[in-house]
Write a protein that binds this DNA or RNA. Structure first.
Lengths: 179, 179
DNA sequence: CGAGGAATTGGACCCATGGTCCGCAATTCT
DNA sequence: AGAATTGCGGACCATGGGTCCAATTCCTCG
């Protein structure tokens, strides 16, 4: 079922086109089975998200290349957000389907991303109030909203330009706060 | 009709509860009339948004108190984003109803906010590439998403704290880029 | 191996909601 | 006054997430 859903999201341009019926049909399964397995559309989306992000997540948590203690926290933060950006673009239709629904900020994925980001920020800027890191993490992640990224791409900004701006902004914010 | 819709949004907690039928009923008008007048739900939402933001918009465009040439651009930028934040919170249900639909970034309101922000940024930091200001404007506005603000409020961050963080972030970003 | 029961399935069905459409009434024109 | 035109209202439609139960599959035990 996840494979079928993934395939559908990968091909369809409009996430709304991928209905639960379509997924069930593509998976050769009844709609009831789909809902029993995932509870709701959001549940399916979250599960699929989890499946796709596993590699990234494990890499980050088990200290793959850039995420080792030797790397300065700021660089780890930049690398982390860059990987999130790449991940979102690679799965843009899925992400779009999930992000254009309310409750995203309460989802486990957002909380994970936010937790990671906040921790890296706290590392990167020496001392800082909790609310400072909390706010900054939210603010940095907000700029990664898929709609926003796609809007920028559509408006002529190239992907390298976006990545460059994003990296620059992260450094600026951290440096500025650290002073 | 706008008054009726406004009243409904002001009272209801969940924006989804305010259906087009409910608005029509509250306005003492047929649903057909509603759709003939506004075209679609988004159309109504945008019109209502326009009506509510008029004061702010006129203040900004006609140089009310903080938006005069004498005020440093950076201060104008901070004030502008702060007013947007206040406006969104004052009309949180309406804004929520509109912001949790796709196409927001293509709406006239977002374009106006983005245009204003970008112009102020370009003023505030001496020289800067166009993409720098464009990106930064998007990034700053992204942190004003109503869902995000409400999530922060729910997580214990106070409104004054948010405003303080936001102001600090704006200054940091501009100062950092200006160097 | 077969019968009985438990678990699981699939898709018909339900319902809410945005959006459409047409008969009718109010209004205007002659 | 009668005819023509405009515009209203609410019945109606389409769609999509979610539910439910008859039917089928799968265990379990004699």
């Amino acid at each position: 079922m996840l494979a079928a859903a993934d395939a559908l999201f990968a091909t369809s341009d409009v996430p709304g086109d991928v209905t639960m019926d379509a997924i069930a049909a593509a998976a050769g399964v009844g709609k009831g089975t789909l809902f029993r397995a995932f509870g709701s559309r959001d549940g399916l989306l979250d599960t699929l998200w989890a499946a796709k992000i596993t590699a990234l997540r494990e890499g980050v948590e088990s200290g793959a290349p850039p995420f080792v203690a030797e790397t300065p926290p700021l660089e780890r933060l930049v690398a982390f957000l860059d990987e999130i950006l790449t991940f979102k673009l690679e799965n843009r239709h899925l992400i779009r389907a999930r992000e254009t629904r309310s409750g995203l900020l309460q989802s486990a994925h957002y909380k994970w991303m936010h937790g990671q980001t906040q921790a890296l920020i706290e590392d990167a800027m020496g001392r800082s109030t909790a609310s400072e890191a909390l706010y900054t993490a939210h603010a940095l992640l907000a700029a990664l909203h898929i709609d926003l990224i796609e809007e920028m791409l559509a408006s002529g900004l190239s992907l390298p330009a976006i990545r460059k701006e994003q990296g620059a902004r992260v450094r600026t914010v951290i440096d500025g706060v650290r002073r």
